[in-house]
Every structure is written in C-alpha cells, then in structure tokens.
C-alpha cells in the first residue's frame, strides 16, 4: 500500500519487503518503549525490596484511564494547543499515578516488610485484583475509546518510509524518560541512595540513608513512568480496557527479567528487545500466537539464563 503510493508520488521508496520489515520494526520499538517504561517500575521495586509488585501493571492501567478522563473532561488540547496540552496531560497523569503508587506501598507492602515473601506476594496480588476491579466498577467492563480528532493522525515521511507520528513520538518520549531516569539514578545523590539501598539495605541505613524514603521514592518513580506508559497505550491504540494491565504487566516483567531484574539499563534494553521480538514474531510467525511469544521468551530466559542478558545481580537459585 505504502509502496504503491510512493511510486505514484515518484519518491524513491524501499522495496516492499524491506518496507514491511521497517514498519514492523518501528512498531516493535514503540511497543517496546512502552514495555520498557513499565519494566523500570518492576525492576526498581525488585532492586530495593526483592518483591514483584504485581499491582504495577494495574497502576499502568490507571494511567491510561486517568489520561482518558483528563483528556476528555479538561479539553486541554483545545485550550492550549496540542503539544502543550499533551505535555501537561502527561505530567498530570504521572503525578497522580505516582501518588497512587505511594498509597499502594503504604497500604499493601509496608505492613508486610518483615513478613515472609509469600505474604508480600499474596498481598501484591490482592492489591492488583482490588485495583483492577475498582476500575471496572467505575468505568465498566467494556473497552473505553480515546476520542478521535484530538490526536493528530499525521504520518511522518522518513526517507520514503511513512510512519505514524504517534509512533515516532512514543519512541522519542520513552527514550527521553529512560535517559532522564538513568541520569537521575547515576548522577544525583538521591540516585546513589537508591542504588545503595538496592545493594544492601542495612549498610545503606548505617550510611545515613533513610531507606523508607528511598522505597517511597521508588514507588513514586516507577508508577509515574508506568502511568505515562498507560497514557501512551491509550494514545497509540485508542482503546483501553480495565484488565489490560495484567498482560502488559506480565510482558513488562518479562522484559525486566530479559534484561536482568534489578538492572535499570537492562529493563530498558529488555523492553525494546521484547517489543521488537513480539512485533516481528506476530508479523512473520503468527499473529494468533502473539501473546504467547512473550511468555515463551520468559520461560526460556529463566531456564537458560535466569540472570538476564545484562544481569549482574544473580536471581538466587536454591
């Protein structure tokens, strides 16, 4: 389709097969960027608390729903223009979901800090079920649709390759957020505190780090990025569902394991890689098995290399 149009406009275009491949690749990168943003939340919490935050996927869904509600009720894009409107929207969603993450930590995880691992896992699962069903009772079980017309459906011409603008924006925005997080963790004093608490909580405490505040911070940062990812999914696909958080959550968790859980650059690389694997797998193997691809990757990586591709921290085997 694209090649036919570009031939008509007599712009030199890549061969159809290459074109198809590049479309799938860029689509995979966009989805992968979204996975990576969610994966960062899993990996940071795991790094500090050694806990799989099962409710993280649902915080992502809250981002999508809050985004929808704010987008339609405030009509920001009409008032201040598209670019500024979306920017304000992203920041509002990130802030609100971050607060939700902090509340979750207080309610579901802090009381169980000293409990056996099973208790925390079950509580996390309970929180996930609770959050998901709250959303269902408020918005209903149907798919919700991001309104047409607010968002530009423009395509971008990159050397004869026509890419949806939203796809390009998502890749750029997710990479921007990841770089910002990476610099924050690596270059600031607070970032150093987070890294220290991830290595050894007791030693960090002895160095005068308030570990509770670090944990709180991790539960603000992770959900903020996850909420932004939810908004991106809404903007990219236009359709959201109250239960989508668990599939995205599982895939993002796979991405975190793929890169090496607890490892922040690993989560970013794992997310992008998984997105590309999935997009190419769906295009060239079978679309019906798309959702199974991520789970197969997950199981394979745990069997073959449980530390992940970049993992320095060893997932203890007993």
């Amino acid at each position: 389709m694209f090649s036919a149009r570009s031939a008509f406009l007599s712009i030199p275009s890549p061969a159809p097969l290459v074109e198809e491949f590049l479309q799938q690749l860029t689509n995979g990168l966009a989805v992968g960027g979204i996975y990576a943003l969610i994966a960062l939340g899993y990996t940071m919490v795991y790094g500090v608390l050694k806990l799989i935050n099962f409710a993280h996927g649902d915080l992502f869904t809250y981002g999508a729903y809050l985004g929808l509600t704010l987008l339609t009720s405030l009509a920001l894009t009409d008032r201040v223009g598209f670019a500024l409107g979306v920017l304000v929207l992203v920041l509002m969603v990130m802030g609100l979901v971050a607060v939700l993450g902090a509340v979750l930590e207080r309610a579901a995880y802090r009381p169980l800090r000293e409990s056996p691992r099973l208790s925390a896992v079950v509580s996390a699962l309970g929180a996930s079920i609770f959050l998901q069903n709250t959303l269902m009772l408020i918005y209903g079980a149907r798919f919700q649709v991001y309104p047409d017309g607010i968002l530009p459906s423009a395509t971008l011409d990159l050397f004869g390759l026509y890419l949806p603008l939203m796809r390009v924006l998502i890749v750029l925005a997710s990479v921007l957020m990841m770089v910002a997080l990476y610099l924050f963790i690596q270059k600031t004093k607070i970032g150093a505190a987070i890294r220290a608490a991830a290595i050894d909580q007791d030693a960090a405490r002895l160095m005068g780090i308030d570990v509770n505040r670090v944990i709180l911070l991790v539960f603000l940062l992770g959900p903020a990025l996850g909420g932004a990812a939810g908004l991106m999914v809404g903007l990219y696909y236009g359709q959201i569902n109250f239960a989508m958080g668990w599939v995205y959550g599982m895939k993002a968790f796979t991405a975190a394991i793929l890169g090496g859980i607890g490892n922040i650059p690993g989560a970013m690389a794992g997310g992008l890689l998984l997105g590309v694997i999935e997009a190419l797998g769906a295009a060239y193997i079978s679309i019906a098995w798309k959702d199974a691809i991520a789970f197969c990757v997950l199981i394979l990586i745990l069997i073959v290399r449980p530390t992940g591709l970049l993992g320095e921290r060893v997932a203890d085997k007993i």
Partner: peptide, 22 residues
C-alpha cells in the same frame, strides 16, 4: 524450572497457564 525461587516459579507457572490457554 522447579529449582527457581518462589516468585520466579510463580511467574513461570503463570506463563505456562497462559501459553496453554492461548
């Protein structure tokens, strides 16, 4: 996978369940 630690095993079994359903 049976040697994997608790929550990892849990994730794998979730994955197996989904693959079977799909």
């Amino acid at each position: 996978v049976v040697h994997l630690r608790g929550d990892y095993l849990m994730i794998v079994t979730i994955g197996v369940g989904e693959i079977v359903r799909i």
